[in-house]
Amino acid sequence: MYELINEISRWAIPLTLLLVPLIAMLRGVSVFETFVEGAAEGFTTAVKTIPYLVAMLVAISIFRASGAMDVLVHVLSPILDPLGFPPEVLPHAVMRPLSGGAALGIATDLIATHGPDSFIGRLVSTMQGSTDTTFYVLTLYFGSVGVTRYRYAIISGLAADLTSLVASVFIVNQLFR
């Protein structure tokens, strides 16, 4: 099963690149011109995200480097410990919605320290795979179209992350403890 899904992942993009232009050509589309016409927007779309990302990543960077995140972890861990949630993985949970790279760094460190097949190693692996960098994605996606009022998008995004976190703790406790 894993091999099958891996093969699909490997082939998905090359096949798309083969089939899309081929079918377009067969339907009488002038493929080169159409590609260039579409690609023309690429530069402005990417550059438009700069101010939004700068704003968000500066705040995240300050929050992290100042030690404020450690304070938050310190405050939260006595509440979470009785729920089967080891305090070691809390920095990962706090960092995950903010920065993908930082969260991955924390996960790697925990796996290296406790071993990939330990309870903590498996828990943090599951958390890393099942949650997303919600703030980063919202900033990037909304920024690319100039939206600054996110309405309820942050609430539903964080609710999903929190649910995945609780579900990770639950299922890993059930299966691997």
Partner: peptide
């Protein structure tokens, strides 16, 4: 953001083709 330029430009081209087809 700058790293995104290349990949977005590329996929926008492919998407335009997919749309036209």
């Amino acid at each position: 953001s700058l790293n995104l330029i290349a990949i977005i430009t590329f996929w926008l081209g492919i998407m335009k083709l997919a749309e036209a087809a």
